[in-house]
Simulated assay, not measured.
Amino acid sequence: MTASTTSTFPTQAVVLAGGQGSRLRPYTDDRPKPMVEIPGTGTPIIGHQLAWLAAEGVTDAVISCGHLAGVLQEWLDSADLPLRVTTVVESEPLGRGGGLKYAAAHLPHPDQPWYATNGDIWTRFSLREMASFHGERDATATLALARPRIPWGAVETDAFGHITDFIESPPSPYLINAGVYVFSSAFTSLLPDRGDHERTTFPRLARERRLAGYPLPHGAYWRAIDTAKDLTEAAKELASATH
């Protein structure tokens, strides 16, 4: 790969870390959701995310804080971080799209593409490959797509109604928004100042065929940390991956 090719990969990112994480209580009673630790790692979710972004070539990250922002900022000030970090706090709620636009305004290179990720995502895959996919399709925005496992056992039947099999936690038949994005520089101006971009900007881009979906590669790890059970499962999966 030539130097001119590698320079097209984004080197800046926004991390959305303002959620209250009400379903993760009591873990989130005294800290924001991204500051919850994966059991056994000694590092909060946001720490794992920043390490992943840095390993993928990101040198600057803007973290959008909200709920208990001071706890997150204090950890960032004391941590040995692998990249430059700026934090922003909305003075009033702007909605998901408005918050993303506000954070993006603090990126160091507004004329260059950027990554974004939700602060409660625990994942590992090649962001560079996703950026290449984004560029090949000349997209304005690209969403990573995951196929999470259904948390219940599934039952298969034949045409006559006989049960033929039981499948424990099968993959969903549907792809979902995995909460990781590649955005072209032009995307920022399309975001609403207030409100939800997933109800405005994304549908508009989809109609114009400027929105791409990047399926996570087979075997890539992905989990949204929404509940205490997710924390437990992530710790188990991490432990099994290291043995």
Score class of each variant (00 low, 15 high):
D77Q: 15
V71C: 10
V88E: 10
T123G: 00
D80I: 01
H106Y: 06
W122D: 12
V62F: 04
G99W: 01
I46A: 12
L72A: 14
W75T: 14
P113Q: 10
I63C: 06
H106M: 03
H106T: 08
S64D: 03
R124H: 10
G95K: 00
E37L: 14
V85W: 07
V62D: 04
S64W: 03
Y102T: 04
Q73Y: 00
P34T: 13
I38V: 14
A54Q: 09
S91D: 12
G57E: 05
T59Y: 00
Q112H: 15
G97R: 05
W122M: 11
P113A: 09
H67Q: 10
G40H: 11
E37S: 10
A54M: 10
V88T: 15
V88F: 02
H67N: 13
V62G: 07
P39S: 12
V88Q: 00
E56W: 02
A54D: 00
E56F: 07
E37V: 13
V88L: 02
G95W: 01
P93N: 05
K101F: 00
C65T: 15
A103E: 12
A103T: 07
Q73N: 12
P82H: 08
H109A: 14
V71I: 13
R84V: 12
V85C: 15
S78V: 03
I45F: 00
I45M: 12
D120W: 01
A55Y: 00
E92L: 04
Q112A: 15
G70P: 01
H67W: 09
L68C: 06
R124G: 06
A105G: 06
L76W: 06
W75R: 15
V88R: 05
T59H: 10
P82Q: 04
W52Y: 07
Y115G: 08
A79N: 06
W122Y: 15
C65V: 10
T43F: 02
L81E: 07
W52P: 08
H106D: 07
M35L: 14
R96E: 01
P82L: 09
L83Y: 03
L72C: 14
L50N: 07
Y102V: 00
G42Y: 00
K101I: 10
Q112F: 05
P44S: 13
E74K: 13
L81G: 08
L53R: 13
G70R: 07
G47H: 03
P44W: 06
